[in-house]
Simulated scan of single mutants.
Amino acid sequence: MLKIKFIGTGSAKASLKRNFTSLLINTHSENILIDCGEGISRALLQQNIELNSIDKIIISHLHSDHFAGLAGLLTNFKLNGRTKPVNIISHQLNLSFIKNFLLSSFIIPERMNFEILFEEFFYEKEFVINDDLKFLTSQNSHLDKYKIYNESYKLPLASPSFLFTHFDKKIFFTSDIGSADDLHLFSEPIDILLCEITHINLNELADAIMKLNPSFTYLIHIPDEKEKEILDFLASQAFDNGQIILTFDGLEVKVF
């Protein structure tokens, strides 16, 4: 069994309606949090998630709406008496920045009651989360616009999209992308599409769904100002390629 709870479904623009996009994946043995923007601890508590029930945290990339709440979340683990280790998983290019950020936030290993384990992944190389779940990543173009600053600032420009495998089922999690071309990074057939809807337009989404042919598409990273447009578009279309769901904070689905 694999369940996904949408802790946050909003874009990078702060919203009173939606938290920053974050997902909680529950396998039979672990809770895996994907991304943790500002306010993640409160968002989890609002949805009756015990903070110390989280076993692993995947950081997709280092835009603040996907990452800035990490230090606060680890602090709350400590304040809630956590003793079991937590694994922080990100691309190899991101880990030194993450470690320095945590130290600068006074997350000192010797002062924590639990171990923080860091795990790195690489593009196009399988990463095994546990016996139930693994993923493959490919670089998308979301951070390409920052390349001109890289020589000056040495930016961590890792921006992966993820292809999760749960036994024989495939979940394509786009993370943030740069263009519609990033919806076609993987050649394998998919069952579930978790697609951000800030950085592509709705016609591009429709074209991608026709080609990818998922059974279910869950739209995430939703700007408040775009929500009515999305709902109107979905109501006007006759999609023959599975069900399309505009997600909301707190939505929980059993996907397999």
Rank of each mutant, 00 (worst) to 15 (best):
I57T: 10
H91G: 15
S11W: 03
N130I: 02
G10A: 06
L183I: 03
L33S: 05
C195W: 03
K99G: 02
I230N: 10
E115L: 01
N19F: 13
I230M: 12
E110Q: 10
D168Y: 01
T137G: 04
L62Q: 10
F77M: 11
T198R: 12
F233A: 11
M210D: 11
F106R: 10
T247H: 05
L133W: 01
E30K: 15
G37R: 03
N31M: 07
K56H: 01
S179N: 13
I32Q: 11
T21K: 11
N94A: 11
I34F: 13
S11F: 05
T27G: 08
K99Y: 03
K99T: 05
F101Q: 05
S236V: 09
S187T: 10
F256C: 11
T27L: 05
F162E: 09
L24V: 03
F135N: 08
I98M: 10
D131Q: 14
K84F: 04
P189Q: 12
K84D: 13
L231S: 14
A68Y: 08
L70N: 06
D182F: 05
S138W: 00
N213C: 10
E196F: 04
G69K: 05
V253W: 00
L185M: 03
S53L: 08
I4H: 02
P160F: 02
I58T: 08
K226L: 10
S141N: 07
K226P: 04
G242R: 04
M210S: 14
P160K: 05
F77Q: 07
K99I: 14
N31K: 15
K226N: 15
R82M: 09
D240K: 13
N26W: 01
I40P: 09
N87P: 01
L205K: 02
K228D: 14
F106C: 06
T137H: 02
A180C: 07
C195G: 09
L74S: 09
E124V: 00
S53F: 08
F6P: 05
T198F: 09
Q47R: 15
I230H: 08
G178C: 07
L23I: 06
I107M: 07
A180R: 00
L231N: 11
N87A: 14
H28K: 15
E38G: 02
F20Q: 03
K228C: 05
I197P: 08
T27A: 09
G81F: 09
E225R: 11
K147C: 00
R82K: 15
E50W: 03
S236L: 13
H142F: 15
K56Y: 04
I98D: 11
Y218Q: 01
A206Y: 12
P156G: 04
I116P: 00
D144I: 00
S22W: 02
F118Y: 15
I116T: 14
I89T: 10
L23A: 06
N48Y: 12
D144F: 06
I4Y: 08
K211S: 12
S90F: 01
N19R: 09
L51F: 06
K125E: 14
A206R: 07
D249N: 13
Y218N: 00
K13E: 14
Q46H: 13
